[in-house]
């Protein structure tokens, strides 16, 4: 359901997790000119009804709202020193 590049795996395995915090792929809605949806990679506490994906020893949370967008469109989490974590998914869209 979620692909993780080698670079992202390495970075994630080097992080010491605080209590209850895990990475999350999150569909983020912003307003303005119509509605835009893009994907964020964030670190936060659990939300109710989260799904947890295990991939290459890493656990990633997705909430039910985001899960509906990811169905059939598995995103890839990448990491680089310059851009940090990024979710690559061709379905980002906005209505402008």
């Amino acid at each position: 359901m979620i692909h993780i590049t080698k670079e992202a795996q390495q970075k994630l395995s080097s992080i010491e997790w605080q209590d209850g915090v895990l990475p999350r792929v999150d569909a983020n809605v912003t307003g303005g000119c119509g509605l835009t949806i893009n994907y964020l990679f964030i670190f936060d506490q659990a939300r109710k009804n989260d799904t947890i994906y295990h991939s290459h020893g890493v656990s990633i949370r997705v909430d039910p709202f985001t899960k509906r967008y990811l169905e059939g469109n598995p995103p890839t989490v990448d990491y680089s020193d310059t851009d940090g974590f990024q979710v690559i998914n061709e379905v980002e869209f906005d209505s402008c």
Partner: peptide
């Protein structure tokens, strides 16, 4: 925090016959 967004609340309001408020 319960996994549901404002977008879903707006769409659920349609079932009750209302135009949703402005969102985001």
């Amino acid at each position: 925090k319960l996994g549901v967004r404002t977008m879903n609340i707006a769409k659920r309001l349609l079932d009750f016959g209302y135009h949703p408020p402005t969102i985001y």
